[in-house]
């Protein structure tokens, strides 16, 4: 009859199935369509950049934890893999290896581990790495291989957003600029120039649907962010269609989709409550549109997310969910 000593612990005695490694695995699975598409689009260059970024990120985290912090290994939670993937998603597929190494070191070393590792970083590590690279290596970071070209030293070209910005500066008309672009269907499926993971809105939406289905994320951030982008650009487009591109163009090009699905929804750097998430998403949308339309850069999602990351503690402080019993009963 004896079964040895019994375990005693405070309740609850059961736990939900969803744990950190499973969530991380789910996010990685959700990234697979976008990754597969970019390999299809850019060939081995995409795989090479992604692989390097993941290896560097994981390796750097392992080294920091083991030799600097001297703590038990933390890489098995899978978050470094995601940082690596996201970093790769945000760079062109022909980036040299040393730039990837620097980006990974900044993302993991400064963006994540210097704050105490997973869960303590105020800014999205992959974006910290990306923005650091964008500011330090502007030329390699903004020269994308043409979509559909398989060789590593293919002709480089600009993104649709880049074409638009440069064209507007050169004084070309909106209509003629839009005519130079691929069709919307092509853009939707991803046949456009750009960073690794951001081209195919379709593949990213597949990932979003998967994550929503697995209840890894909620709809609040992606929907509020995309809606804000649509509404804001829509207003400007209605005011002056000759000067501003239409909302569909803005949503489908650049990093909006990638940002809405994977970057802004990062647990650690987004608000806790649904209300907070809505504020966060709207903030990112507004900033993105402002940077795109009036800023110097053709693209503003990364900056918008990083800026809103800084507001997260404040949003957490004030955007609270209603409590039970808080609202006095009317009857």
């Amino acid at each position: 009859m004896s079964t040895g000593l019994l375990t005693v612990s405070p309740s609850p005695h059961i736990h939900s199935e969803l744990t950190v490694p499973q969530i991380m695995r789910g996010v990685i699975i959700a990234m697979v369509p976008a990754l597969a598409f970019s390999i299809y689009n850019f060939g081995l260059g995409a795989l090479y950049v992604t692989g390097l970024a993941v290896i560097f990120c994981v390796g750097i985290e392992y080294a920091i934890v083991k030799y600097l912090l001297k703590k038990p290994a933390s890489i098995h939670d899978g978050s470094a893999i995601i940082t690596g993937l996201l970093l790769a998603f945000n760079v062109p597929s022909n980036l040299p290896w040393y730039i990837i190494l620097i980006g990974s070191a900044v993302a993991i070393g400064i963006g994540k581990m210097s704050f105490g590792g997973l869960g303590n970083n105020p800014f999205n590590p992959a974006l910290v790495g990306r923005v650091f690279l964008l500011l330090s290596f502007p030329v390699p970071m903004t020269h994308w291989p043409q979509a559909g070209s398989w060789s590593l030293d293919a002709v480089t070209g600009a993104t649709p957003l880049g074409i638009l910005k440069d064209g507007m500066r050169a004084g070309e008309s909106m209509d003629s600029l839009l005519n130079q672009m691929p069709s919307y269907v092509d853009i939707f499926f991803g046949f456009q120039g750009g960073s690794l993971g951001e081209m195919s809105a379709f593949a990213l939406l597949l990932g979003l649907i998967y994550m929503l289905y697995r209840k890894i994320i909620t709809w609040h951030i992606p929907v509020s962010m995309l809606l804000t982008v649509v509404i804001m650009t829509g207003i400007f487009w209605l005011i002056d269609p000759a000067k501003f591109a239409n909302p569909l163009f803005h949503v489908l090009t650049g990093g909006v989709m990638l940002g809405a699905v994977f970057m802004a929804t990062d647990y650690v750097t987004s608000p806790f409550t649904h209300r907070g998430m809505l504020i966060f998403g709207v903030g990112i949308g507004v900033l993105t549109v402002l940077i795109r339309l009036f800023g110097n850069y053709p693209e503003g999602v990364s900056f918008a997310i990083l800026i809103m990351n800084a507001f997260v503690p404040m949003i957490n402080r004030y955007a609270k969910e209603p409590r039970y019993g808080e609202v006095k009963q009317k009857r």
Binding site: H15, L118, G119, V268, E321
Partner: peptide, 29 residues
């Protein structure tokens, strides 16, 4: 409760996922 289910699993850092807030029936944080 069987042995393998009776001990707690490894604890990670807080991910700020907000699931506890979603789950709290009293609307606390």
């Amino acid at each position: 409760i069987p042995k393998e289910e009776s001990t707690r699993a490894e604890v990670y850092n807080c991910l700020h996922c907000g699931k506890c807030i979603e789950a709290c029936p009293m609307g606390l944080e």
